[in-house]
């Protein structure tokens, strides 16, 4: 169990480093795919199979495809190799390392609880989504509609005003 977990943790960390350091955006997007698959595997290890499937379906299937599309559509605008792709690397590394130390000092003091006996079943998740959590569920669907309409309005070419 811990060996499998260590393997996926290493996979996630190494490919997350690639995501933020690779200059080629296409390769960074593919490494993001590796991170997402690793996180889905950790979800399965945590016995949240439904979320793992949603993660693969939505993230790897939809979001990553969209990102790859955007990278290819804007490939002509990629800056020349002489222009640096990163800025303020040392201060940013110091800041995020400090933030990591802060977060770790907080989380390491949390008690290591034993996992619960009863598992979260898909049936109970679905039941909660239409009873207690019905308001956030509906808000999410409203946000989906708004995002879809907004994306179409933003990305569609400007209509030229009719000539008189």
């Amino acid at each position: 169990m811990s060996v499998i977990f260590g393997f996926f943790a290493l996979l996630i960390l190494v490919s997350a480093c690639w995501v933020v350091t690779l200059r080629n955006l296409f390769r960074a997007a593919l490494s993001l795919g590796l991170v997402l698959l690793g996180v889905a595997a950790v979800f399965i290890l945590l016995e949240a199979e439904f979320l793992a499937f949603v993660q693969i379906l939505v993230y790897v299937g939809a979001i990553l495809t969209l990102v790859v599309f955007a990278i290819m559509l804007t490939a002509k605008l990629q800056p020349a190799p002489s222009i640096p792709a990163f800025r303020h690397q040392l201060p940013a590394a110091a800041a995020s390392l400090g933030f990591f130390a802060l977060l770790t000092s907080v989380t390491s003091s949390l008690p290591a609880l034993a996992p619960a006996q009863e598992l979260v079943t898909l049936a109970s998740l679905g039941q909660q989504l239409v009873t207690t959590l019905v308001l956030p569920f509906e808000v999410i669907s409203l946000i989906f509609v708004a995002a879809m309409v907004g994306a179409i309005v933003l990305a569609a070419p400007r209509a030229t005003p009719p000539k008189r």
């Binding site: 997350a16 995501v19 303020h88």
Partner: peptide
């Protein structure tokens, strides 16, 4: 924190 680093750089 890796995500924050990426956002900053």
């Amino acid at each position: 924190c890796l995500g924050v680093f990426g956002m900053l750089t």
